[in-house]
């Protein structure tokens, strides 16, 4: 069985002045996969991710995301992916409904589609009673679930999640991962970064970046075997320690 590649990264490099943040990384992500993109602070994760979502131009190498070249078709890449981060998500001073309408518009949905999607989404999230409340008044966990759903409004083939669960309480964090699983089962590819190592275990495959290069890439099970440790936390500690 041949798996369909949805992201193909080949010798992707990004240099700022005399500093190379991403040093020729090569990897593939398959359709419907939950791909964990891990690394220490400053390892080059954010820089790599920015190139993949079409907001930063590679210095050299290439990346094809959902069939589009990030260097020459950056605008199309942005339209064909979903993106959610803890730092940028929704507008606090718009209501839940207004946020959905706004992002639906940005993603180019028709009025009719937006109307349908809004209904569906509010029902699915059980937010009927708060649909006209400002997003700013919602608990963080709700915001994140809403923000994830909004990132999926235009039914992208792939969604990028940048530390989606930071600071969220343990139960909400798990509910969030159940949403991720459900979405992956529908065939959406999930590309996720996190600092919670238990969440790394939930991924189908995990890559670990150290100092601008991908030091390890495999299923959590194989990585633990390869490094002969009990948990992904230990894999992470071992990899980053070896650099020092």
């Amino acid at each position: 069985m041949k798996k369909e590649k949805i992201i193909q990264v080949e010798k992707l490099t990004k240099t700022f002045g005399d500093f190379t943040a991403v040093k020729g990384i090569t990897f593939d992500v398959f359709k419907g996969e939950i791909f964990g993109f891990l690394g220490a602070n400053g390892a080059g994760k954010t820089t790599a991710m920015k190139m993949l979502i079409g907001i930063s131009n590679p210095t050299s190498g290439s990346a094809i995301v959902a069939g589009l070249d990030v260097a020459t078709q950056a605008d199309l890449v942005k339209k064909n992916i979903g993106y959610m981060s803890q730092k940028f998500s929704l507008y606090d001073d718009l209501t839940i409904k207004e946020n959905i309408t706004f992002f639906g518009g940005i993603y180019g949905l028709s009025r009719k589609q937006i109307k349908e999607k809004t209904q569906q989404l509010i029902t699915k999230l059980e937010m009927q009673n708060v649909a006209d409340n400002l997003v700013g008044s919602l608990p963080l966990g709700w915001k994140q679930k809403l923000s994830f759903s909004v990132a999926l409004l235009h039914e992208p083939k792939i969604v990028f999640l940048d530390e989606p669960t930071g600071g969220v309480d343990p139960i909400t964090r798990r509910q969030f991962w159940e949403m991720i699983y459900t979405q992956a089962h529908k065939g959406t590819t999930i590309f996720v970064t996190t600092h919670y190592m238990d969440e790394a275990e939930y991924c189908d495959r995990v890559s670990i970046m150290v100092d601008g290069v991908i030091e390890a890439l495999d299923t959590p099970k194989n990585l633990k075997q390869q490094f002969n440790v009990e948990s992904m936390n230990d894999v992470f500690l071992k990899l980053a320690r070896n650099i020092e």
Partner: peptide, 13 residues
């Protein structure tokens, strides 16, 4: 107050 939020596992340790 939350000195390790958003910090990777190695730096946290």
């Amino acid at each position: 107050d939350e000195p390790t939020t958003g910090v990777d596992p190695v730096s946290r340790k």
